[in-house]
Nucleic acid binder design. Structure first.
Length: 293
DNA sequence: GATACGTGGTC
DNA sequence: TGACCACGTAT
């Protein structure tokens, strides 16, 4: 599988290398990019990454900035609690590691907002540590091509670790992610032109030798995300509106429900605002107004 | 292990 | 056009 994907990769590599975080191996910028990319599509992160990376070229620069500035830079990306985690992580990197991103898995996992994927991404992309990243794309490739069956997260990680070629950690992880994104896509995978289809891919083998349709092994598999409830009218939608509005100025308590888009649900808006306070995204000022923390 | 978490894009 | 999809971490 490794050889086939590496033979395919050059056809897309140049384009993919234009993504701004691919032109650096700086550990802090890699960590910043991966935290921004958490559950957020590449296309929407690209522009904003350039802005934030320029403002916070080091962990120290981020740690010294007020959280409200980090939040204001973040707004529009979604999952605003990641901005709080980023700021805390920057502070912790300064306190615990002298301002340098740690290069071991355990230390990285201690940082807020850094989980299995992000920690390994930093190791693989900026430290050349033997390590495999399993994001939704990689998880899908592994389930379909390497296994042919659903994988638990642990199994997916183990499989991924076994594949990493010595001395090509960064390139391999980028290549398999690109492959999952562009060829082994979630919907309508390009099996017709896939370099794995004729030989390696277990799912294709099963489909060829079976009369009935074989279900996609990537569905519900480890590392592949599950769907979520409707956004319209959800708490998340109201939260997003409150945080966005708070970037422009303090929010009086009695206006919260209108800003959240629920004119008749004052209680609900207040509950959401208080959740934002608990999460460290907002705070109540002396006037009882809500503003960015 | 189920659920919450934001926004923009596709069909 | 409204349901569906991409996209990891924390609890």
């Amino acid at each position: 599988m490794v050889d086939e994907i590496f033979r395919w990769w050059p056809s897309v590599r140049q384009t993919r290398d234009e993504l701004p975080w691919r032109s650096t191996r700086d550990p802090w910028l890699t960590l910043l990019a991966e935290m921004m990319l958490t559950q957020t599509q590449v296309a929407r992160v690209a522009e904003r990454f350039v802005v934030i990376a320029e403002r916070f070229p080091t962990a120290e620069a981020c740690a010294k900035a007020p959280l409200s500035e980090v939040l204001a830079l973040w707004v529009g990306l979604g999952y605003n609690r990641r901005a709080v985690a980023l700021h805390r992580t920057a502070v912790l990197i300064c306190e615990r590691h002298g301002g340098e991103v740690p290069c071991d898995l355990q230390s990285l996992l201690q940082l807020p907002g850094v989980g299995s994927y992000t920690a390994r991404a930093v190791l693989a992309f900026s430290f050349d540590v033997q390590s495999a990243v399993v994001d939704t794309n990689v998880g899908r490739v592994l389930a379909r091509a390497a296994s042919g069956t659903q994988l638990r997260p642990r199994e997916a990680q183990t499989l991924a670790d076994e594949l990493v070629p010595v001395g090509q950690v960064r390139d391999w992880n980028l290549a398999i992610m690109d492959f999952g994104h562009l060829v082994c896509r979630s919907r309508s995978p390009m099996c017709e032109s896939c370099v794995l289809a004729s030989s390696v891919c277990r799912w294709q083998q099963m489909r060829r030798s079976s009369k009935i349709e074989i279900p996609d092994p990537a569905v519900g598999s480890g590392g592949v995300s599950t769907r979520q409830p409707t956004f319209e009218g959800s708490d998340r939608q109201g939260r997003g509106r409150l945080v966005r509005a708070a970037c422009l100025g303090p929010l009086p308590e009695d206006e919260l429900c209108h800003i959240a888009g629920w004119p008749n649900e004052h209680e609900r808006a207040l509950r959401i605002a208080d959740m934002l306070v608990v999460e460290g995204i907002m705070r109540r000022d002396a006037n009882g107004c809500y503003q960015l923390a």
